[in-house]
Write a protein that binds this DNA or RNA. Structure first.
Length: 461
RNA sequence: GCCGCUAUCGUCCAGGGGUCUAGGACGCCGGAUUCUCAGUCCGGAAACCGGGGUUCGAAUCCCCGUAGCGGUACCA
């Protein structure tokens, strides 16, 4: 069993809480890859029957996040709440055919029934029902409902263990498992790729489809995502939504690559796969069965790889957008010298801010570096920088390079004080490049300021 | 309780009866990069959940156990 037909319709359905959960993003990506791989139509359906949750604001946030990830769809976005009329029609049909019936029993009644009859026998309705109450679907007493799953294979659920479950409330509003099945049926969905948490819901949807007399779609249930503690991934694990990842400075391409690898591998040992390769190689039936843990460290590493691969122009434009700045010549230079160091867009500004603002205050860095021979080193550097004609990175290196040997100091004893003097921190792009970007005037001013500060507060030796 | 699903390094992904002294990646540890490291290169430690079975042979197949997860709602 595999997805290969040309006219298949794949639906993906994030739930509309506003945040696009990373697990939901992965499911969306898997759907997208499967559809693009086979040339099928991709249907985006917002899956929720709850009006209070499915607010316009929430839905548009989800859509923004999907668009940012560069996942497009062919039909939709369509909200399930918008399909209430179709749901009502289907409900009436089942009521008429006798496949469903009204029953006044409440949840407590059902619980009491089970306590009395043993937990292994499903509730089968109140014979004295008067035609009011919630709508329940008739479930057979015997036999199994079998889910043919692309990933898990054949999974059997004994019918006896299911209650005649409620498909609509007393007021006629429908419940999830009914709404989903009806939508799949009349939207002609042929492939459903969704989270494992729906595997035990699938028999119910299959029963609704059977009562409707409709051929079910094919299902692929992908494993869930967990946080590092093995619990379901949530906010307390740090970033849990793609919006948070976006704000933290990750690239969409990275997320697509990384998230695809959570539950699936290409079969060989490749780790870096661009989106074209993903589309070509991804098969839903190759997805693993066990849940995966989202590891932001690997994401960071991968993001660094993607950031360094960008050409300078694209990189600068991306940084500019993230920082909300002009992609001008100055930013281009700053980007040029810092590109190899940053792993996320968030890390770029700390590396280049020295070119825009005065050095940061970092008492710890100052105390660690500005002692012993630092003053002498800075004096020497200052002199060299003042005299050199060429203030390019190469020129600066030619001027400053010989100083360590001349003063009989280890190179670090010369370069680190310069770094702290001009940036305030101990980590920055290459020191010659940094001085060149800063220019002669500002470099000298900052070194002078550092020298002044040293003489005012002599460091302990 | 009942019904399901799952189980390989700390993490992700390979391997699906012999080629496994189990492979790759992240992370970690060590070294290098006569400037920093949060960059780059090199090296290292690190795993088949437990017990039974099947088999000449099991990480791989079967059963039991254990653990985790999901469902069991007039939630989605």
């Amino acid at each position: 069993m595999s997805i290969s037909e040309k006219d298949l319709r794949v639906r993906f359905a994030p739930s509309p809480t506003g945040a696009l959960h990373i697990g939901g993003a992965r499911t969306a990506l898997y759907n997208w890859l499967a559809a693009r791989h086979s040339g099928g139509k991709l249907v985006l359906r917002i899956e929720d029957t709850d009006l209070d949750r499915s607010t316009e604001e929430n839905v548009s946030q989800i859509i923004d996040a999907l668009e940012w990830l560069e996942l497009d769809w062919d039909e939709g976005p369509l909200s399930q709440v918008a399909r209430a009329p179709e749901h009502a029609v289907a409900l009436e049909k089942l009521l008429e055919s006798g496949a469903a019936y009204r029953d006044a029993a409440t949840a407590d009644d059902v619980k009491a029934y089970k306590a009395k009859h043993g937990a292994d026998r499903g509730y089968r309705g109140d014979p004295s029902a008067d035609g009011s109450g919630a709508v329940r679907l008739r479930v057979p007493d015997d036999g199994d409902t079998v889910v043919q799953d692309l990933i898990h294979g054949e999974v059997r659920f004994p019918n006896g263990s299911y209650d005649d479950f409620v498909i609509a409330r007393g007021d006629g509003s429908v419940l999830y498992n009914f709404a989903v099945a009806v939508d799949d049926a009349d939207m002609g969905i042929t492939e459903v790729i969704r989270g494992d948490d729906h595997l035990s819901n699938t028999p119910k949807q299959l029963m609704v489809l059977k009562a409707l007399g409709v051929e079910p779609p094919r299902y692929a249930h992908v494993p869930l995502l967990h946080g590092p503690d093995g619990k379901k991934l949530s906010k307390r694990h740090g970033a849990a939504s793609v919006q948070e990842l976006r704000d933290a400075g990750y690239l969409p391409a990275t997320i697509r690559n990384y998230v695809a690898l959570l539950g699936w591998g290409p079969g060989d040992d490749e780790t870096l796969l661009d989106t074209d390769e993903l589309v070509e190689r991804f098969r839903p039936e190759d997805v693993g069965k066990s849940s995966a843990v989202f590891d932001e460290k690997k994401l960071r590493w991968m993001n660094g790889r993607y950031m360094r691969e960008l050409d300078l122009e694209t990189y600068t434009a991306t940084v500019a957008r993230f920082l909300d700045r002009e992609a001008d010549a100055e930013l281009t230079e700053a980007c040029r010298i810092s590109q190899e160091k940053a792993s996320t867009l968030n890390e770029v500004w700390p590396l280049i801010r020295f070119a825009y603002e005065e050095p940061v205050e970092d008492e710890k860095a100052w105390r660690k570096i500005m002692k012993n021979d630092a003053g002498a080193a800075l004096e020497a550097v200052r002199g060299a920088l003042e005299e050199t004609d060429d203030f390019s990175a190469d020129g600066v290196e030619a001027a400053v390079g010989p100083i360590p040997e001349r003063l009989d100091l280890k190179p670090g004893k010369v370069y680190q004080p310069i770094r702290v003097a001009i940036t305030g921190t101990t980590v920055s792009p290459g020191i010659f490049e940094s001085l060149a970007v800063l220019g002669r005037e500002r470099s000298l001013k900052r070194i002078d300021a550092a020298l002044r500060r040293m003489s005012e507060t002599p460091a302990a030796t």
